[in-house]
Every structure is written in C-alpha cells, then in structure tokens.
Computed example of a mutant assay.
Amino acid sequence: MFRLNSATMGVPQARERIFFIGRKKSLKLPDLKLEFNKPPVSFGAIADRNSTSHPPLRPSIEKRRPFVEYGDQNLKFADARYRNLTTYNAFFSTYILYDDTVP
C-alpha cells in the first residue's frame, strides 16, 4: 500500500491517493519504492494570464470579488463580508486559487 500525493510528481494538483499493488510471491520481484520528490507546481506557474477564451465572471461573483481576502478558500467568506454578516451560506462550492498554492 502506498499513499501518494500528485503534488510531488510534477502534477499541478495536490491530491492524495492510496494505491494497493498486488503481486504474486512466486515471481520474487524486488520491493517497489514509490518515492517522488518533484517540486510542487503552483497555480501561478500554469495560469494563462493572456487567455481570451474564458467567459467573464458572473455578476454575483464580480460584486463579491473585492471582498476576497488572501487565504479564503471559497467565496462564502467574501459573500458574508459583502453582506456584512457573520454567517456563511452561499458560494461554498467555489474554490479560490492563489499563485503560490498548488491547485
């Protein structure tokens, strides 16, 4: 059994996965060593700043964008600041990517 994180494999995502590998003992294969030490690929390294193919932000998101604070994981916090509330009940399914984080 191996727990691997794609961020250490040169892939621009941070996802841990468990791999189970079964082998016949009669084959007498050497032990597997799955160790990856590639540096993480951040969002800033892959972002296309000059893209013209993306649609504009929806008006509801555009209004809340100025209320995003660094470290917010999604727009629910910006929404609460926008509405001057302390409860979070909207935009929970969004994900905010920062240049220095692995998507």
Rank of each mutant, 00 (worst) to 15 (best):
F2S: 05
R3D: 15
L4A: 04
S6I: 09
A7Y: 04
A7N: 03
T8F: 08
T8G: 08
G10N: 07
V11P: 03
V11F: 11
P12L: 05
P12T: 09
E16G: 13
R17I: 01
R17A: 01
I18M: 12
F19I: 15
F19R: 08
F20K: 02
I21D: 07
G22V: 08
R23G: 05
S26F: 03
L27E: 05
K28M: 09
L29E: 06
L29C: 01
P30C: 06
P30V: 04
D31M: 05
K33C: 13
L34G: 01
E35F: 14
N37L: 07
K38H: 02
K38A: 04
P39Y: 04
V41I: 11
S42Y: 07
F43L: 10
F43M: 08
I46E: 04
A47S: 13
D48T: 02
N50W: 02
N50V: 00
T52R: 01
S53M: 04
S53A: 08
S53E: 10
S53V: 07
H54E: 15
H54N: 13
P55W: 12
L57D: 00
L57Q: 02
R58E: 15
I61R: 12
I61M: 10
E62Y: 02
E62I: 04
K63V: 02
K63A: 08
R65L: 11
P66N: 04
P66F: 00
F67P: 00
E69Y: 07
D72H: 00
N74M: 07
K76A: 15
K76S: 15
F77R: 03
D79V: 06
D79L: 09
D79M: 06
R81K: 05
Y82S: 11
Y82C: 08
N84I: 15
N84A: 15
N84L: 15
N84Q: 14
L85E: 14
L85M: 11
T87S: 11
N89W: 14
N89L: 13
N89R: 13
N89V: 13
F91N: 09
F91I: 07
S93H: 06
Y95A: 14
Y95F: 12
T101M: 12
T101H: 10
V102W: 00
